[in-house]
Amino acid sequence: MEILELIGAITTLTGSLILLVASIGLLRMPDVYNRLQVGTKATTLGTILSLLGIILIMPGWWGKLVLLIFFVMMTSPVSSHVLARASYFIKIPFTDKTVVDKLKVSAKARKVEYEKK
């Protein structure tokens, strides 16, 4: 029992360290798209690890926590995709380091943009 609690505490700690890296990344990255990249990936694994640690500490709550993990895994990529798409179409500028933008030169994508207006 105590060993389980210890493993749970370590897992939760790892999760919060990953969340810390995510917040440092939010400060350091130059534009909104790169920030979304860091935000999505690191927060997903950070949240999952924290919840897994709580499952190990409090085994009675596993059902709800598993549901939470599932929802985080399904919703966080969708929301960041929608945010990225919206910021692209209201023309938030890229950083200077950007090397290629295939969406701009693609005729297909432009057609879709016009149809919406």
Binding site: M29, D31, N34, K97, T98, V100, D101, K102, L103, K104
Partner: peptide, 8 residues
């Protein structure tokens, strides 16, 4: 900060 971003 080794990034080289772009849309492909």
């Amino acid at each position: 900060l080794p990034i080289k971003p772009g849309i492909v």
